[in-house]
Amino acid sequence: MAPQTATSQLLDNCLTDAEFPELPDFTRGKVRDAYKLPDRRRLLIATDRQSAFDQVLAAVPYKGQVLTQTARYWFDHTSDICPNHVISYPDPNVVLCKDLDMVPIEIVVRAYLTGSTNTSAWTMYERGERVIYGHPFPDGMKKNQKLAETIITPTTKPTGGGHDAPITEAEILETQLVTHEQWRELAEKSLALFARGQELAAKQGLILVDTKYEFGIDENGTITIADEIHTPDSSRYWRADSYEQKFAAGEEPDSLDKEFLRLWIAGQCDPYNDPIPEIPADTLIAFSNKYVALFEQLTGLDFERPDPAVPVRDRIRAALVSELPEYFQAGN
């Protein structure tokens, strides 16, 4: 048998399954595996599964760790704006958090006209729409152009594997998905969180282009941010020093986010109608490197790569045994 290459070792040690039968009420999302614990607690484990165009496509080395630690940085730096769901971090991939009553919409905040999915502002603009998510857009705009002002473009949350669907503020209030007061607070907090994100990203030479927030309501009725915040899965980041030149040339910005993979896929097929081809190993490694580079540039911290000889799943299990021993005791 041929010896493993460094690439194959990395790909083989990705975390694709975080289901532990000892823990209760397991649910699986595209990226995170979750458990509902007593006393309004949840356990979220970020895997290395990679989704795009509402499909799970591959596994990306270090991805779950990058997402968890990037979100941790932002939760720590925005807690004065909005409370978050975090209780503790038992492992670099794991968050023990509050179990919230989730708000049934996702709040997407945009500062640029861009994107490649069916719900992105650029895709809608390119097909001729000039009122997008209730906001008027002038003719003559170009892809990746900065908007005159930051806007909120909410979507409904998919259920049963469905797709995100655009919705306007008026429709949210008309259908009473949230109250008027809740919507006002959600909008204010989202814009404030985004402004903080733009400010701190700019100091590190990055542009926070757009992002998605998910909120819930805690046991005291407080609106609380959940899931993740300003990660490369939920946000776009561009390198600030090359943006103007790339935009003037009609080229895609230098990005450090999920758009890299979306554009690769869109270059191979129509992801909404064609089978998506297998993603080559070198593309997955390049993608992983972008996520790690974003974490380091954004936070100013060194990314601590785990020991490749220790399976990620084994490390996480050991952390859970230590954090939640009552579930792993003999006989349970």
Rank of each mutant, 00 (worst) to 15 (best):
D39Q: 14
I45K: 03
S51K: 10
F75M: 09
P61G: 10
Q55A: 11
K30Q: 10
Q69T: 15
H85S: 15
R32F: 01
D54K: 08
Y73T: 04
K98D: 10
L100G: 05
V108E: 04
V60C: 14
L44D: 03
V66E: 00
Q55D: 11
H85M: 11
D101H: 12
Q50V: 13
N93E: 09
D48M: 07
Q50M: 15
A59I: 02
T68S: 15
A34C: 13
P90S: 01
Y62G: 06
I107D: 02
R32G: 00
K36G: 08
Q65R: 15
A71D: 04
L67M: 02
L57P: 01
Q50R: 11
A59Y: 05
D33H: 03
R72N: 14
D54N: 13
K30H: 13
R40F: 07
L96N: 00
C97K: 08
F75R: 02
C82W: 06
N84F: 02
T68Q: 13
Q69S: 11
K36S: 11
R40D: 14
D101M: 08
Y62K: 02
Y62D: 14
V108D: 05
D80V: 02
S79D: 12
P104I: 12
Q65D: 10
I87K: 09
L43Y: 00
Q50C: 15
D80I: 06
A46I: 11
I87Y: 08
D91Y: 00
Q50E: 14
A58T: 08
I107M: 15
R32A: 08
S51L: 09
A52Y: 11
D101S: 14
A71I: 03
D33W: 02
I105K: 08
V109R: 08
L100T: 02
H85F: 07
R72L: 09
A46W: 03
Y89H: 15
R28S: 15
R41T: 13
V103Q: 07
D101E: 13
A58D: 15
